[in-house]
Write a protein that binds this DNA or RNA. Sequence first.
RNA 1: GCCGUCGUAGCUCAACCCGGCAGAGCAACUGAAUCGUAAUCAGUAGGUUGGGGGUUCAAUUCCCUUCGACGGCACCA
Length: 575
Amino acid sequence: MALDQHTLNHSTSHLMAEAIMNLYPEAKLGFGPAIEEGFYYDVDLPFQLTEEDLAKIEKEMRKIAGKNLPFVRKEVSKEEALKLFKDNPYKIELINGIDGTITIYTQGDGFFDLCAGPHVERTGQIQNFKLLSIAGAYWRGDSKNKQLQRIYGTSFEKKADLEEHLRILEERKARDHRRLGKELGLFMLSEYGPGFPFWLPNGMIVRTEIENMWKQLHQKYNYMLVDTPIMLSKELWITSGHWDHYKDNMYTTEIDKNEFAIKPMNCPGAILCYKNDLHSYRELPLRYAELGHVHRYEASGALNGLFRVRSFTQDDAHTFVRVDQIEEEIRSILKLYDEVYSLFGLNYKIELSTRPEEGYIGSIDIWNKSEAILKEVCEKSGKEFKINPGDGAFYGPKLDFKVKDCMGRVWQCGTIQLDMNLPERFDVSYIDDKGEKARPVMIHRACLGSVERFIGVIIEHFAGAFPLWMAPEQVRVLPVNNNFHLEKAKEIVESLRNAGIRAVLDASEDKLGYRMRASQVKKVPYTLVIGDHEKDEGTVTYRHFGSKNQITLPYGEFEKMLQEEIKSRALPKAE
RNA sequence: GCCGUCGUAGCUCAACCCGGCAGAGCAACUGAAUCGUAAUCAGUAGGUUGGGGGUUCAAUUCCCUUCGACGGCACCA
């Protein structure tokens, strides 16, 4: 019978723990669970482990595995447990927190560990593992506690599976958006502005295409585009409640002795837009969409390529609806999101986050009502979703859209947040059918989330080989011989440009093979080779990125094919 | 922010452990070759070794400090 992956990883962490205790008897073990793609163990040591130590630990692990010791479960009383682990304050803390049965697992030759199990039968079943990295991690995940050394590793039943996993790790490195961003000239980061990305010409094309698509779709869904100031008075942020909760993460300045803050959110701006007019119940829902450039002071250690930055653009929208319109509005948003994600071939899961334990604003009644509506709409939509209790924003419950890329990794992108608090704080209203003031509900929503992060995700998702519609360079044209084919190649580039296609001529004197390679390295979707045949017959011969095939077409057909592929925003063709 | 690692040419890396003229490939530039689908050949130029300080006759190398990046943790409206 095949071993359970989770159990195997967990047992491997125990095997590692024994190896560590054999090598470093003064070590104190913390947590050592299996995780999604492996396992880790937290260990408190009086010295710092190095990469070389990992090899030593691995060697010791193989020794223990070679003995093929049995994993044995044993129930113990709390007193016994406390005595067994008397030298380890971490385990004592855990034991004192356990209510029910306390179990330990031994591996046969003296090593034992506090553990609920289950485990594989014998250490000999653990053969194909690798220790990957060392990192700091707070005891019990609390930054007030001591930091322990965490060793990550992974374990598989079959050698081929371990190798495959290590290959995937390499593949991820090769697809890293920071690396591809550099190689393809998409964006850069500078030490002069940590966390503030620069968009380079190629990345600007990708970004502009995505934003154009976004604007078109929002127009289709009856949103109104607005743009609100990047800096607004501190007073506004006090009213919104952001000042109280996030002032440490906001950039501030002073103008004419008044305090201002750079916006970390677009909502107050949208609210001011709404309040600029008096609104009738007949007008609702009113949808204000904004590609809003926000700034947040993120902890230095949190910065990570485009995934976590201090300056980013939210594809934001704020919709003001009557309570009876919430359900339909949410449904319309779901449809819009579907349309966007499918353009990138991204699948997603929905997560509903509910009221946090503390620090929330507004009444529990309002929270419960909002949560119920979101849950109901999700259930009716037939989408897969789960609930994250206590994970909501301070002003309301939310739906998060977790996008899964082609490497199986999950990214938080879209969000839909119901907010019955801000309308109250800003005294937002509309005139109802009885001529009286009524309070609308505000829905905050973003589909891509942060445009920066989203582009980071799709760079990795497509490994830099973007769909034609957003590719920085769509066609590269290579004349076989500059003496005979250059004019024809120029003519083709010009025709393509006139047709709205981003075409580039490579008239360098290098050999064709060299230029073909250069084009492939830059992941240009279509590379044309123009020689005698093409010149004489009015055709083009193209090679699609990732394919070795050469296809010859009359020029007109080629242009039409590209225009259709661009217009439909098609995904790259599978080769 | 915390723990750890790292910072050398535009890029990828070597020399650092054990102090003694900072080197290679790619890219760039110049020249030759004019070539039908992933790297033609030869040459030239390119560096206050992230910044600051210290130790030393001498620092890329050792020490301190600071900034930045990376692997995690904590955080993520």
